[in-house]
Structure formats: structure tokens, C-alpha cells
Design a protein around this nucleic acid. Structure first.
Lengths: 245, 245
DNA sequence: TCAATGCGTATGTCCGGACAATCGAACTAC
DNA sequence: GTAGTTCGATTGTCCGGACATACGCATTGA
């Protein structure tokens, strides 16, 4: 069966984007079965009344997502494996919400403190200058799941405790006009201290999953530094990687 | 100072790639300082004797890498933050080698076993069909750092114990003509069992960092499944993320 | 003084075409 | 029958141009 594709030239949505979305939907929906050829670009362009560069741009975006593979002299085919999340920079809150977990947040601390050396270095501010400090407990199904401690440079976001409990930190930052660009992460493990064990409902010495992250906006400014600890029985990092070729 | 750029039209290397490499080198080297504008595409194309699409392709590849940011009506500027590793699908061996650690590998088991249910499901083969099983101990500075257990479908790679001790598994697979495409990973933590503690030189119940991974080639075939455990005092996952926009 | 408007500039999108490089298969010669 | 060759198909690279869109800034107006 030939795929039912069409584009709307009166729409403000770019043509290549319309096409790539339709192709992605067709793959998701099963209309394009894994391993099948996509048909050559020239003919596809002619069929849709588009130019080849436009069609190529649409296909390329799906190749970058890992859904398609191009082979010179052969064609473009659909990759078998179901790519779920190519590991984007996401907030724990969004992740849980997407998984249908209905997360709850309890703000333990929301204050301004002088920056310790490590914090100042990560955020690129002067030592002992004032930074925001937020401590939160994230719960699912009424049980604590993670303890989140974050630091932010002053003046970037208005950190309202009520909003922090209703949504994620990243969403607040984006709403404040910050363009998130990249983040440097370290994931490790260690034994719980007495205080951590108490907060998370674990025993002292129990294994904890830890994550440390510094986030940058598109000007290269550090906009957030956080140290998180997770209960490994209730959370693990799961993601999909693509080879960069 | 105007940047010293040039392309070699007689080279088989694509022009856009030559340009992107020179730009990347200039950024790395500091000739292009963070935050500086790159100059408009039209003029850059004219200066190099290239067309604008070619210049755009070069710039776009660096934008995808997170080194540049485009702003319509403004220009293209260099991002401040130093992007190190955009989290590619890499082997532990290569990572350690790149860090100058000189890793050592001890192959504990290299055999063929019937696939248990979990393994068969991950690799997409029939239960109890034969699969390769490899158990390795990775050491740095003479100390154990990770215990790696991997399963591979039969007939893909010739698993020579000597080669396994001299290099990483991924390198062997690539050498065997396998095109690695994507991998699904889960990172977590748990307490060490008695056997694990013994192998890694930790105490029973000590926190361990765990990673489970299934790797696929570009036809969507699962080509490897592995469960790894790391000593958190000696290893943690460190990487850089980019927002997909 | 401050807000609204207009303009220049740069990137975003799209077109139509050309030639090269590579893969797979059919074909041919031994 | 097998190995080497040719050839068609398809993607890779590159060109030159056109118009749309958004941002920053200067100008203008209230």
C-alpha cells in the first residue's frame, strides 16, 4: 500500500516538518513497518509536489532521531527497534508525569544562602555571594522517592514555594524566559547517611542512587546546580542512546 | 581578527565537513571566543567561494553538537560552556583509555549457554537457544572497578578471550562489521551480594552502581545484552546532555 | 519620558538542477 | 560453476537564487 501523505502549503508549519511528522506518525502507528524501504526521494518529492531538498530535510530529521537509516545505492529504511526517549534534558517531574505517576513535591527549604566554594564554582559566581537554595522531597504514591537539593544564581527566576510544589523546576525556568541548552551530569551511588535515610525512609547505610547536575543556558551561563539522591528501589535512570556517526 | 578559513576542492572530504572541522578547531583552540558572532552566512560563503547551503550545513552540524547557537535576525554565536562528551554510545574500555587510565581486563567466563527467559527476551531469540556468555572483570591500577556480564547472539562475533582482554567488546563488534545504532540503558543502584562483594573487593551489602544495556545494530537486531556492576568509589557515569529543540 | 512604528539584517524555508559515490544485481567471460 | 565486470538505482554533495520571518535598533509620536 502506498502511504497517504500530504502537505498543507497554506499552513505556517514548515513543509519539511509536516512531512517528518507524518512519517514519524506512520512509523509509530505501524503503517510503515520496520525494515521496509521508504521509496526513493525523487519520486517521493514528485508525489508530494515538493522539492528534493525539502524531502531530504524531513527524512534527515528522522535519521537524526534514530528512526530511519539511509544507505547509499539502496534506499532509506525504517529501523526495527522502537526508540522511546533519546535521553533529552528532562526534569524528574516531567518524566514522572509522562509515566502517569502523578508526582507530589514537598518543599523543605526555599531560602537564600551564601554560596559555598563548590556551589560558587559550579554556578560561576563569587564565593559567599548570595544564591537560592531549594530542598525538595519528591513523592510518588505517598512514598518518598527522591531528595533534591538545588542552587540557583539570584535574579533569574522567582521561586515561589507554591509553584515549586505544583510543577517542576525546569518548567519554572523556561517560563521565566530561560533557554536551557545543555547540562553536565554525574550519576553515581553511595551509602545513605543518617539524615538522608531518615528523609527518604531508608535505613542508614542503604544504597542510594545519586545525581549531580549543572545546567547551562544558551549563553553558556550556569543557571542551576543540583545534587539529587534517589531510592534505588523506586527509581532508576532509563534512556536510549544513539551512536553519533 | 578575521578567521583564517579555507577549503580544498580537490580533496575527497566534503566541503561542508572541512569547514565544520575548521570551525570546531577554531572554537576549541580559542580563535573563536565564546559569545562572539560568527559573521553572516552569505558573506562567509562568498569569502570561501562556497554556496550558502554548504556553509549552512557546516554550521548546522556544529549547532547539533551544541557548540553554536543560531538566532534569527541576530547571527550565529559560539556557546560559552565547554561541551566535552555529548554522551555517545561508548564502551567502558574506550572511556577509560581516553581518560588515560590504561584499563586491564580479566575474562572470567567465555562460553556458550542456553538463554534464560530474560536474556532471550532482551536479545530477541528463542528461550534456551544458545547464546554467548562473557563475564569480565575490569581493573584500573590493579584494583577491580567493574564486573561485566554480557550475552551475545551466536554467529555474530568471534569471541577470542585474548582479544577480549586486549580491547573492548564494542571494538570487536565493530571490527566484525556490525554497525552499532542505538542502545537502551538503565542505571540504578543496589546492595552487593556476597559473590559480587567478593569479586569486586567490597563488603557484602555495600552500595553498587548497576547498568543494564541492550544494544541494537542498524537493522534493529539486538546484538548485545549486558548487566554491569561498578564500584561507586571508583566509577561514576559522567556526561553532557543537550536539549533537543 | 516612554511607547509604538518602521527598517535593516540575519537566519529560516524552499526551489530546481547537476554531478559524484556507492550498493546490489544482472550479466559476461573464463 | 565461479569470478570479475558492467550497469541501473539511490543517496551524497553542491550550486545559485528567491522569498518569508523574526530580532534589534533607530526613529517617531503621544
Amino acid at each position: 500500500m502506498t502511504l497517504d501523505l500530504s502537505v498543507d502549503r497554506s499552513s505556517p508549519v514548515p513543509l519539511y516538518f509536516q512531512l517528518s511528522q507524518q512519517l514519524e506518525a506512520a512509523i509509530e502507528h505501524g503503517a510503515l513497518t520496520p525494515g521496509s524501504l521508504l521509496g526513493n526521494e525523487i519520486e517521493l518529492a514528485a508525489r508530494l509536489g515538493l522539492s528534493r531538498p525539502t524531502v531530504r530535510q524531513a527524512i534527515q530529521s528522522l535519521v537524526d532521531k534514530g528512526l530511519l537509516v539511509r544507505r547509499r545505492g539502496v534506499g532509506t529504511q525504517v529501523v526495527h527497534s522502537k526508540v522511546r526517549r533519546p535521553l533529552e534534558l528532562s526534569s524528574l517531574y516531567d518524566d514522572l508525569e509522562a509515566a502517569g505517576q502523578r508526582p507530589a513535591t514537598k518543599v523543605l527549604v526555599n531560602t537564600v544562602v551564601p554560596a559555598a566554594a563548590e556551589i560558587a564554582a559550579a554556578l560561576g559566581v563569587a564565593e559567599d555571594s548570595e544564591v537560592h537554595r531549594i530542598e525538595r522531597l519528591r513523592l510518588t504514591h505517598g512514598e518518598p522517592m527522591a531528595y533534591l537539593c538545588n542552587y540557583l544564581p539570584p535574579g533569574l527566576v522567582d521561586l515561589d514555594t507554591g509553584q515549586l510544589e505544583a510543577t517542576g523546576l525546569y518548567r519554572l525556568m523556561r517560563a521565566a524566559g530561560i533557554t536551557l541548552h545543555s547540562a553536565r551530569q554525574t550519576i553515581g551511588a553511595r551509602a545513605a547517611t543518617d539524615g538522608e535515610a531518615e528523609r527518604l525512609g531508608e535505613d542508614p547505610g542503604a544504597p542510594l542512587l545519586t545525581m549531580e547536575r549543572t545546567t547551562f543556558d544558551d549563553t553558556g551561563r550556569a543557571v542551576e546546580f543540583g545534587t539529587h539522591t534517589y531510592r534505588p528501589s523506586r527509581y532508576s535512570f532509563e534512556f536510549q542512546l544513539l551512536v553519533r556517526s
